[in-house]
Design a protein around this nucleic acid. Structure first.
Length: 480
RNA sequence: CAGGAUGUGGUGCAGUGGCUAGCACACUGUCUUCGGACGGCAGAGGUCGGAGGUUCGAAUCCUCCCAUCCUGACCA
């Protein structure tokens, strides 16, 4: 447990703040190969809670989990022209195996659409076999040039869902259903307000007809694509011959979807909620929801305090609270307060000799840092108070993140205001531009279309860039 | 892949040609206690990123290489 060095301030160097907090909060470490990460137990526990929250949502819609290979024949990727074009530069290719050069190199999966296409082609014969609804929890490899822990690493963890349907309508319905699941997860579990919307053609997934996204605003005003859901149309079913016999004894192609959310979301949580004291984890996902710090001066006090701590720990566990007792005896309470605030534990109980006398404890909330977030409460009914406080913190964190996002989102109608708005946050604009216009804006301002939000104003407006009549608004921002 | 920065105990750093390479934190033992990053004493831990060169002498100067981070380009 390294004594925490002072964290860089967010508003001075957000990037340094992020790198430092990830390492000091024990979320992750760098791997031995450039651009790889080691997820430490505390970070992995958060990921497990994310997995559980998503997995139950998937299964509620009839999705089953499966495991697919890590290796893909190179030839598979070539079958879908846009797909291979999109991924070719970042493929890790295995050229040797068993001590010999392989006749045909194999690719380490950057995503599994092609493997799924191959399997579905074999599995699906009849309309009675549809829909197929699978999800994979795995890791994938993309040889990125520029990496950042959790946000973009050579290997990352995620889930990828893959479904096949008999109709275009059903595929689109599934695409939106999963986007909704991501939105619900982000907002209600992670307290990360996201904007669900559709990607522009330039930002679309390689091989998709339509790509949908949830976009979140990080603490520095930049956008982070936090989950995606793709309607793949018939692109992969044509490339892999995924067909079925319908009721009329005809053999149409399937309509497929894929959707993914990755360990990048851990980065989203860190950068949405974190402050100058460190991490701030949403109670519903936090590996530790409340930490108990005992305070004592001598052995007699320690005995009495630890007995009380044990009782509180039991009460909280019974109430379903994920609780940890910090019984490290070589560290001062003051150190521990800071340490657990840095790690983002949403609530903290402090109990010492004075509390034993007063039949009280100190109860602190992480979303209000320092002493301000601390109050002394009666010992009776403590578990209920902690549960209620956790709910409060969850609600308050979502409210704070939403307020921050809204305060840094601006409706603008001209390029000058657009530049100013995207320098600090999101710009919402009427948009009727072309791909060329979008590229030019990107070159000049570094801002890109994050999404065309699902929620649109009524009526039409004037495109801020081209002056043409526009029937939709777009969110532009600089992004990770 | 280009530009920049950095490589010295576990971590963060100091040390720009000269004796045995220092400091802080962490670590081990011990004493002392702990309500917002306690204190004392004792201790362990380093082929100074690698290779070659210059020199009586190199962490320090030169050449090459390697790695990481940052910025940009690129990218679900």
């Amino acid at each position: 447990m390294a004594k925490a060095d002072k964290l860089p301030k967010q508003n001075q160097d957000f990037n340094a703040w992020y790198n430092t907090v990830v390492l000091q909060a024990d979320m992750a470490d760098y791997g031995p190969v450039r651009g790889t990460m080691i997820v430490k137990p505390y970070g992995w526990a958060l990921w497990e809670n994310i997995q559980a929250a998503l997995d139950s949502r998937f299964k509620a819609t009839g999705v089953e989990n499966a495991g697919f290979p890590m290796f893909i024949p190179m030839e598979f990727l070539r079958r879908e022209a846009k797909h291979v074009e999109g991924f070719a530069p970042e493929l890790a290719v295995v050229t040797h195996g068993g001590g010999k050069e392989l006749e045909e190199p194999v690719v380490v999966r950057p995503t599994s659409e092609t493997l799924i296409g191959h399997a579905y082609s074999n599995w699906i014969q009849s309309y009675r076999d549809l829909p197929v609804l699978l999800n994979l929890w795995n890791s994938v490899v993309r040889w990125e040039l520029r990496t950042k822990i959790f946000l973009r690493t050579l290997e990352f963890y995620w889930q990828e869902g893959h479904t096949a349907h008999a109709s275009a309508e059903e595929a689109q319905e599934r695409t939106m259903m999963m986007l909704d699941a991501y939105t619900d997860f982000a907002v209600n579990e992670a307290a990360v307000p996201v904007i669900p919307g559709e990607k522009s053609e330039l930002e679309r997934f390689a091989g998709a007809d339509r790509t949908f996204t949830i976009e979140a605003m990080m603490g520095d005003g930049k956008a982070l694509q936090s989950g995606t859901s793709h309607n793949l149309g018939q692109n992969f079913s044509k490339a892999f011959d995924i067909t079925y016999l319908d009721e009329n004894n005809e053999r149409p192609y399937c309509w497929t979807t894929s959707w993914g959310l990755s360990s990048r979301f851990i980065g989203a949580i860190i950068m949405t909620h974190g402050d100058d004291k460190g991490l701030k984890l949403p109670p519903r996902l936090a590996p530790i929801q409340t930490v108990i710090v005992p305070i004592y001066r001598n052995d007699d006090e320690a005995t009495a305090v630890m007995a009380a701590v044990a009782r509180i720990e039991n009460e909280l566990k019974t109430a379903g609270v994920r609780v940890k007792v910090d019984n490290r005896d070589n560290l001062s309470p003051g150190f521990k307060f800071n340490d657990w605030e840095m790690r983002g534990v949403p609530t903290r109980i402090e109990i010492g000799p004075r509390d034993l006398e007063n039949n009280s404890v100190a109860l602190a909330r992480r979303d209000v840092p320092g002493r301000d977030g601390k109050q002394f409460v009666a010992r009776d009914g403590l578990a209920e108070k902690v549960v209620a406080l956790l709910d409060d913190v969850q609600v308050a964190m979502l409210a704070a993140a939403t307020a921050f996002r809204d305060a840094n989102t601006e409706d603008v109608d001209n390029y000058n205001d657009f530049r100013r708005a995207t320098a600090k946050g999101f710009a919402r604009v009427w948009w009727a531009g072309t791909n060329e216009d979008e590229n030019r804006i990107k070159e000049e301002t570094k801002a890109t279309i994050r999404c065309i939000p699902m929620e649109q104003p009524t009526g039409t407006g004037t495109c801020f860039f081209t002056g043409k009549s526009a029937d939709k608004v777009a969110i532009f921002a600089r992004s990770y």
